[in-house]
Structures are given as structure tokens and as C-alpha cells.
């Protein structure tokens, strides 16, 4: 009697356990309607950017004399070419440039978020897990960096990098693959790398601070103590306990970092301290559109809309992930 009730009691949970942690997360994520829509939007944007050379009707830097400022859905009278989103001040096809710009802007955002997260997580784990003087050195350094006003320093570093471009050497094994991904020349890629470095230089602070806090709370748990009593090494504990336990909020943090990088990159480009013109980014396209918008009011909408959609979608995905990963929350 007792054994049968025990088996029936354990059978129910076993069925659920077979679902797997990530399957549960995905099931919960699917309930967030906006997040699912956003996932679709981001997928479309990523696909369009990735397949840009196949989709694009024109070359991204193909200048057309006498066909500049064409409004969306217009046909060039001379050549009979159709410009679905119109053309910019140099007669370049806006649709082509927007999808090529997506390649650059999204690559920059993803790389900046990844680089800064990796640096931040490493330093944060070191500070939070080991404590003592390691923590003091890293925390003080973090506080020191935080005394710099972000945008001001960002502008200065970007200005220095851009003016000194010819003196800075970037190894070919970074430039060559990146230039293939971005579909721009290696000379232009160098500028992109410099902007990525500039943004990554300041954005690792948030993940570092966050990871330090997580590592600090995990460190005090009893299972860490027992793990250590069993003779586990520091590296083992970090890998098996500290990191997996901090992973869910870190994923959410990562999506926010992607958005921050996207916004900062477009802001820098918009102010003229980011990636410069022949290389298309949503930010610098918007900057040009801004100066011609008085006569051609539709112009800022073309690069503005992708920024709007991408930024909102990334944030909604982050929001959905936050709800899905927080198991304490009842949905």
C-alpha cells in the first residue's frame, strides 16, 4: 500500500521533469505575445540583413545622378528602375542601404554586447567569487570608470580613434572575416572595429557589476560549501555552480546590452562620431536624412523605422525572457 502510493506520487513529477528546463522556459516564453511577435520581427530583420546581397536590387554604394531624393514606391523616369523605399541624397537605393546597414548595425550591436559581456562576466566572477583584494581592485576600478560621464568619454574616444585611424593596426585575421560579414571593404571595416572597441570599452561595467553581485550571493550558499568540502576546485565551482546559477538573469542582461549597444552606436553615428558615410549604418543614414528632412520629410522614416523595430523587439524579447526564466513568477 505504502509502496504503491509512493510510485504514483513520483510518477506525476517524473513526467514533468522529462520536459527539460529549457523546454519549460520556451513554453513560458511562448505565452508572452509581444515577445513572440518581436522574435518574428528580429528574425525577419536578421534574415534580410544576412541575405542582403541576394535581396538587394542595387549595389549599396551605387550612386545615381539625377535620381536623388526619390520618394518611396517610385520609378526612376530615365531608367525605369523601381525604388521601393526611394533614394537618398546621392541617389543610392534606400532599401538596399537599409538592409546593408542592418548588417553593420546589428553586427556591431551583437559584437559589442558579446565582448563586453565576456569581459564583464570574467571580471565580475573574479571579484565576487574570490573577494578580498581581487574584489577591492576590481570594484575600485569599476567605480573609477563609472566616474566618467559615459557619453562624453564615448565621444572623445571615438573622436580620437577616428582621427588616428591610419595609425592603428588591426590584425588581418579580425579584419578579413569581419569585412566579409559586413560586406564592406577592409578599410571601412577598420573603422567599424574601432567603434566596436570604443563601445565595448564602456559597456562591460554593467555586466561586471551584475555578475559580481550574483557571484557574491551564490558564494554564500550551502551547496558551495559542501562542494568545497568534497574537494572541488575553484574553477569547478565557478563552472558548475556560480555560472549556471547566474545564467538566467545574465541572458536577460545580454539582450539589454544588445539594445544599449544598438542605441549607442546609432547615437554616435548620428552625432557624426560613429561609422562614417560610405559604410551604411542606420545611425548615419538617419543623420543625413535629418539634414534633408525639411524638403523630404519621408527620409528619416526609412532608417528610423528599422531602429525603432529592432530596438523595441530586442527589449520585448528581453522582457519575455525575464518572465520565462524567473521560475518564482507564476504565469
Amino acid at each position: 500500500m505504502a509502496t504503491t502510493s509512493a510510485t504514483t506520487a513520483t510518477e506525476q513529477p517524473r513526467k514533468r521533469r522529462s520536459e527539460g528546463q529549457w523546454a519549460i522556459v520556451f513554453r513560458r516564453f511562448r505565452r508572452h505575445r509581444m515577445a513572440m511577435v518581436s522574435l518574428g520581427i528580429i528574425t525577419v530583420i536578421l534574415l534580410a540583413s544576412f541575405l542582403a546581397p541576394l535581396i538587394a536590387p542595387f549595389e549599396p554604394d551605387e550612386i545615381g545622378l539625377g535620381r536623388n531624393y526619390l520618394p518611396p514606391m517610385s520609378v526612376n523616369a530615365e531608367t525605369g528602375q523601381f525604388h521601393i523605399l526611394g533614394t537618398d541624397h546621392l541617389g543610392r537605393d534606400y532599401f538596399t542601404r537599409v538592409i546593408y546597414a542592418g548588417r553593420v548595425s546589428l553586427t556591431v550591436a551583437l559584437l559589442v554586447a558579446t565582448i563586453s559581456s565576456v569581459i564583464g562576466i570574467l571580471l565580475g566572477v573574479l571579484a565576487g567569487y574570490f573577494g578580498g583584494w581581487v574584489d577591492i581592485v576590481i570594484s575600485r576600478f569599476l567605480e573609477f570608470i563609472a566616474t566618467f560621464p559615459a557619453l562624453v568619454i564615448l565621444l572623445i574616444i571615438a573622436a580620437i580613434f577616428l582621427e588616428n585611424e591610419q595609425f592603428i593596426n588591426i590584425p588581418d585575421f579580425i579584419l578579413a572575416p569581419l569585412s566579409a560579414v559586413l560586406a564592406v571593404s577592409e578599410r571601412e571595416t577598420k573603422q567599424v572595429v574601432l567603434i566596436i572597441l570604443t563601445l565595448a570599452l564602456l559597456n562591460w561595467i554593467i555586466p561586471a557589476r551584475f555578475m559580481r553581485g550574483m557571484a557574491l550571493t551564490v558564494r554564500e550558499q550551502l551547496y558551495i560549501e559542501s562542494s568545497r568540502a568534497l574537494g572541488a576546485s575553484h574553477w569547478f565551482i565557478i563552472r558548475k555552480h556560480t555560472f549556471p546559477n547566474s545564467l538566467p538573469p545574465l541572458i536577460v542582461e545580454y539582450t539589454l546590452a544588445v539594445n544599449t549597444a544598438l542605441v549607442f552606436e546609432s547615437a554616435l553615428s548620428f552625432l557624426g562620431f560613429g561609422i562614417q558615410d560610405p559604410t551604411p549604418t542606420w545611425g548615419n543614414m538617419l543623420a543625413f536624412a535629418n539634414s534633408y528632412m525639411f524638403n523630404h520629410p519621408w527620409m528619416p522614416l526609412v532608417p528610423g523605422l528599422p531602429i525603432l523595430l529592432a530596438s523595441l523587439a530586442i527589449n520585448y524579447i528581453g522582457d519575455g525572457l525575464r518572465d520565462a526564466l524567473d521560475t518564482r513568477l507564476q504565469l
Binding site: N259, V263, S266, A267, F270, L286, N290, M293, P300, G304, I307, L308, S311, L312, I314, N315
Partner: peptide
């Protein structure tokens, strides 16, 4: 979540 200049424009 959106950049300030977007609202400005």
C-alpha cells in the same frame, strides 16, 4: 528603449 534622437526627429 528607444534612442532620444528618434523622438526628436
Amino acid at each position: 528603449s528607444l534612442p532620444t534622437f528618434f523622438f526628436g526627429i
